[in-house]
Amino acid sequence: MSRPSARQEHPEATGGSGPTAGDRILTLPNVISLVRLLGVPLFLYLLLVAHADVAALVVLAIGGTTDWVDGWVARRMRQVSRLGELLDPFADRLYILATLLGFTARGVVPWQFTAALLARELLLLASLGVLRRHGYGPPPVHYVGKTATFLLLAAFPILLLAAAVPDTAAVAGAIGWGLAWWGLVFYWVAGALYVVQARRLVLAVRARGASA
């Protein structure tokens, strides 16, 4: 007998009731997510190669502000898909990773801040590896994680503005770092919640194995 999926065994792991994810690939939300992904190499080129900080700022701001658009369109148009559920958080993480690496290389953020965020990603990757060994896919994105992503994607353009336009450094720097530090805190809180959820699923598998 095949193992029931995490969605079947643990309805709470689906992230609540809503449009059921399908197998559709070519949908408007997925196209939006793919366009966001294409903005990542463009942003890195503008920031690190062309040193066109204003243009990089525009690309980064568009990528950050459209973070919620694909999800909203998917729910509004009933085009929720499994690919979209995976693509959206992947695009968010890629934007955050690329921005951190680019900002660190340019001296916009200190390496300690980048290391703190990357350490959380390593923790999440380890948890996903454990889940996969027990037959589960990645857990749904938690609202705390969404909040952290929103704060970070809002902070990055403001920090770049502070670095690119010295006259705005005092105000933009304060706002940007305020959002960034809160984003870092929520990012780690979300990571801890994912670890707890993964632990519960693994314990449930072991309990079934022990009672079999």
Rank of each mutant, 00 (worst) to 15 (best):
Y194P: 09
A163H: 10
F186K: 09
H51G: 04
P41A: 11
R120E: 14
G84S: 11
A190K: 08
Q79P: 05
P29A: 15
P4W: 04
L117E: 01
F156I: 13
G209F: 03
V165F: 03
G107Y: 01
R82G: 02
P11I: 15
I96Q: 11
L117I: 15
T65G: 10
S81D: 02
R93N: 12
G135Y: 00
A154L: 15
A155Q: 03
L57Y: 03
T149R: 04
P4S: 13
Y194A: 11
L203I: 12
M77H: 10
G84V: 13
R106K: 15
P139Y: 03
S127H: 00
L37P: 01
A190V: 13
P138E: 04
V31D: 01
A162C: 10
G178P: 04
G178V: 09
Y136Q: 08
P19Q: 07
Y136S: 12
G16L: 09
Q79K: 08
S211R: 15
A116H: 02
I175F: 02
R75H: 09
P89G: 05
T66Q: 06
V31S: 05
V59F: 02
T27K: 02
T65F: 09
L28V: 15
N30T: 10
I25N: 00
A163K: 04
L28W: 07
L101E: 11
L152Q: 01
G18E: 09
A98V: 09
T99D: 11
P139C: 08
A119W: 05
